[in-house]
């Protein structure tokens, strides 16, 4: 877990770079870069979640709320107060972090299912506010007219430009998180995950670390929300509801809870399944989605990220 191999990272980056070029040349999938934009947005959230769930061992069923906070801060500040969209992103992230600290301080004392319920409740409450604070958020119908992003008169208004923008940010978050994992912070987090009493005995301020990771993952989710809002030019509360929080956990489970690669694989896979592939099955869509999820939990409890290691092991030791 500790050592980071360079080859997969280089391969991944190359794939991301040439993907739009390749997709454009294969008939039937030339719209895939558009799906990849949303996949990238989901990746930003799951990178933070993998730190929270995989390394700090804390579950969250409320991250859609932070995603929504970023989106609504961007939406409200740009449409009502004429803020520059770029400025809204750090403001949203700070707001999300502040909320995370306020909620996290009492919540993270909770364990297991109690923590799951507390984060779930938090997410639902925030969503009710998005829905009911009509004068600010536009209510259940949502909010229109959110401006797109631009930089020095360059407009990120094409699918291609937004694709590279989103994935550039994902790459930055990825490398930052890897650096974090390899730093003393990461070591402390792993110690907490292995054994809280032992970590406490070594003098690690557990509560502070947990809150830090919670706030960090909230900031990434908020950033993802801002990117979503400026791409869609529209947001509504339904996008940030409890079922999206559950979907995030499903991404983690499919990809693998315990590695940052799992977070990326899970987010991309679920994005393509739910936004693109599954609708071919029409009325069987829900059924097949459930079946895939069940099959992965049964046969790959470590998630898809555990698959290469498993295959390698099998290749080395032919039984």
């Amino acid at each position: 877990m500790l050592q980071i191999r360079k080859a997969p990272i280089a391969a991944g980056m190359l794939f991301i770079l040439i993907f739009p070029w390749a997709a454009d040349r294969i008939p039937g999938i030339d719209h895939y870069p558009d799906v990849m934009i949303f996949a990238g947005i989901y990746c930003l959230i799951t990178i933070g979640l993998s730190l929270l769930m995989g390394y700090a061992g804390q579950i969250s069923l409320g991250h859609a709320a932070f995603y929504g906070i970023g989106a609504y801060v961007s939406g409200i500040l740009t449409t009502r107060y004429g803020f520059d969209p770029w400025l809204c992103m750090p403001i949203g992230a700070l707001a999300a972090a502040a909320v995370a600290v306020a909620v996290g301080a009492p919540s993270l004392r909770l364990r297991g299912h109690y923590l799951a319920m507390a984060t779930l409740a938090f997410g639902v409450i925030v969503n009710i506010f998005f829905r009911e604070q009509r004068q600010w958020t536009g209510g259940p119908d949502g909010m229109t007219g959110i401006p797109g992003l631009s930089l020095f008169s360059f407009e990120f208004d094409s699918i291609l430009s937004y694709y590279y923008l989103v994935w550039g940010i994902v790459a930055a978050a990825f490398f930052f998180t890897i650096a974090l994992i390899q730093s003393p912070v990461g070591r402390a987090l792993r110690a907490i995950h292995t054994s809280e009493p032992a970590a406490a005995a070594m003098g690690i301020p557990i509560a502070r670390y947990k809150i830090f990771v919670f706030a960090f993952s909230a900031m990434l989710a908020s950033l993802a929300g801002s990117l979503y809002a400026h791409y869609m030019n529209f947001i509504n509360p339904g996008t940030f509801d409890l079922f999206f929080s559950i979907k995030l956990v499903i991404m983690m489970a499919l990809g693998g809870m315990h590695s940052i690669w799992g977070a990326l694989v899970g987010a991309v896979l679920v994005a393509f399944l739910s936004l693109e592939w599954l609708h071919f099955f029409e009325q069987f869509e829900i059924l097949i989605y459930g079946a895939i999820l069940l099959l992965v939990t049964i046969f790959l409890p470590e998630g898809l990220a555990g698959l290469p290691a498993k295959l390698l092991e099998r290749a080395r030791r032919p039984s």
Binding site: F38, G142, M232, F234, N236, T239, L275
Partner: peptide, 9 residues
């Protein structure tokens, strides 16, 4: 499916 993201795509 009543989902804004899907509808947009």
């Amino acid at each position: 499916e009543g989902d804004a993201t899907k509808c947009n795509l």
